[in-house]
């Protein structure tokens, strides 16, 4: 399986999804496409024919505004049709800008109010241990999101409960709406922070498929504590005009012409 190729296709679908409504959270969606590719095409135990399968692995996209990237991944995987993918934020759509578990097949938790998803994921990891179902619970938080105190509450408790079935990703793209994260309220050293919270921490190139795959495999082998994989990413990764927009790419417009050009660039 050529995951590089799949990641490019998912990037293309993400762009088409956002372009269908003309504007959206492009930056933080594009930065996590590689981890979503590895999760859904290699590491996660999920069944597209049975999205609610008992004992499936689950993903909580705590940075719920990156929904378009997850919708694109679910579309590529076959959970939702291409036609539906292009209904983002349309009135009565099943694909709202922020993830909704009651609307979209394959979405495991409703998220969007930052800091909350990670707690829900911790609850699921506890539930999986209670159910003894051997599932892994994955959660993606943002670096900006980590300014929320609840992220640290949840991290403390995941460690306290020794949740080695809990694998947390930090999309460390150093940007948020108002400016660079380091200029607003910096995490300074996320590796040290999560290590001091009792996590097994790996810091990798978050846009490198192989590194992500290896890190997840290593995290699964880790026992007795939760894992943090710091994904050092580029916000807007894969398309030059989005990357170049920098901080402005958090939510930005995309025209039909820009889409065509971007899809060409992804070939």
């Amino acid at each position: 399986m050529d995951m590089q190729k799949i990641a490019k296709e998912i990037r293309g679908l993400t762009l088409r999804c956002v372009a269908s409504v003309g504007q959206g959270h492009l930056g933080g969606s594009m930065s996590i496409v590689d981890v979503l590719t590895v999760l859904y095409y290699k590491q996660m135990n999920v069944d597209v024919k049975n999205p609610k399968m008992i004992a499936r692995d689950r993903l909580v996209l705590s940075k719920g505004h990156a929904g378009p990237a997850l919708y694109a991944t679910l579309c590529h995987k076959g959970y939702i049709s291409l036609e539906e993918l292009l209904t983002l934020n349309k009135f009565k759509t099943n694909l709202p800008s922020h993830c909704d578990m009651n609307k979209t097949p394959g979405i495991d938790m409703t998220t969007g109010s930052l800091g909350q998803g990670i707690s829900c994921a911790v609850g699921m990891a506890i539930a999986s241990k209670l159910a003894k179902d051997q599932a892994y619970i994955y959660c993606i938080i943002g670096d900006g999101e980590s300014q929320e105190g609840q992220v640290w509450e949840a991290s403390m408790y995941a460690s306290q409960k020794q949740l080695d079935n809990f694998i947390l990703f930090l999309d460390n793209n150093n940007m948020q709406i108002d400016n660079y994260t380091s200029k607003i309220n910096s995490l300074i050293n996320p590796k040290l922070k999560w290590e001091s919270f009792g996590f097994f921490v790996q810091s990798i190139d978050g846009n490198n498929i192989e590194e992500i795959d290896q890190a997840i495999t290593k995290a699964k082998q880790n026992k007795g504590c939760p894992s943090m994989i710091i994904l050092n990413t580029i916000k807007g990764k894969g398309v030059s005009f989005i990357e170049e927009a920098g901080v402005s790419n958090h939510s930005m417009p995309i025209t039909t012409e820009q889409l065509a050009k971007a899809l060409e660039e992804l070939k």
Binding site: S119, C120, V122, M124, A127, Q150, E153, Y157
Partner: peptide, 15 residues
């Protein structure tokens, strides 16, 4: 940590 408590509860309920 009440905020986390409610989130953890929601996660347990989702399961």
């Amino acid at each position: 940590q009440e905020a986390n408590m409610i989130g953890v509860a929601a996660g347990l309920a989702a399961y």
